[in-house]
């Protein structure tokens, strides 16, 4: 193996890994650290790379493990009163409440999205998703990502994130309301 091989990984896949990490941790510095940790882990484990998988897929797999570790850690940090997370939750609850009138009806008419999703590119799609995820609280975004992007079963999400099913369902309901509102505002308005 030539010494420059990991450097080539960095050159060819660094930005893709960074984009992926950023979508999950919403912080540029943290995303950079994750890219570094991923490439170091890959360097250590490079004998285990099976040439039949694509290198990008292999590296992304390592990064996913790192992200999961981070999510576990974040979800186990006890929420303190008046923490940023706490303020997010309050704002989130308010925003959800705004979706409905006092009598429980939709406060705004919903749009028929039809088949218009083909009209935008991959990068446009992901930057929009990222923008809408960023408007959710970190906790809500985490759970939404695990469920809707990583396609984890609800039981598994509950176990990994140490929450009850009811808590997860409630949070996902809010997250979906938030995501649809954001998408509708930015895409279909």
């Amino acid at each position: 193996m030539s010494i420059s091989e990991p450097e080539r990984w960095l050159e060819e896949h660094g930005s893709a890994l960074y984009s992926f990490a950023f979508l999950h941790v919403r912080d540029g510095h943290r995303a950079e650290d994750l890219v570094q940790e991923t490439l170091l882990a890959a360097l250590k484990a490079r004998e285990r790379f099976q040439g039949n998988a694509s290198l990008r897929t292999w590296l992304t797999g390592i990064l996913k493990h790192k992200i999961m570790d981070e999510f576990r850690r974040q979800s186990r940090e006890a929420p303190t009163p008046n923490s940023p997370e706490d303020a997010w939750d309050a704002a989130e609850a308010r925003r959800v409440a705004e979706n409905f009138t006092d009598s429980g009806r939709w406060s705004q008419p919903l749009t028929n999205w039809g088949d218009s999703e083909q009209d935008f590119s991959r990068d446009q799609f992901w930057s929009l998703i990222e923008q809408c995820l960023a408007a959710l609280s970190p906790r809500m975004a985490r759970l939404f990502v695990l469920r809707e992007l990583w396609e984890m079963e609800t039981e598994e999400v509950c176990k990994e994130m140490a929450i009850t099913p009811t808590n997860l369902w409630t949070t996902l309901h809010r997250a979906r309301l938030g995501m649809r509102q954001c998408l509708e505002k930015n895409l279909y308005a």
Binding site: S19, L23, V35, S127
Partner: peptide, 14 residues
């Protein structure tokens, strides 16, 4: 997603 560029300084550091 591939919408972001790893910043130059980070790339150098890594």
């Amino acid at each position: 997603p591939t919408d972001k560029q790893l910043p130059e300084e980070a790339q150098e550091r890594i």
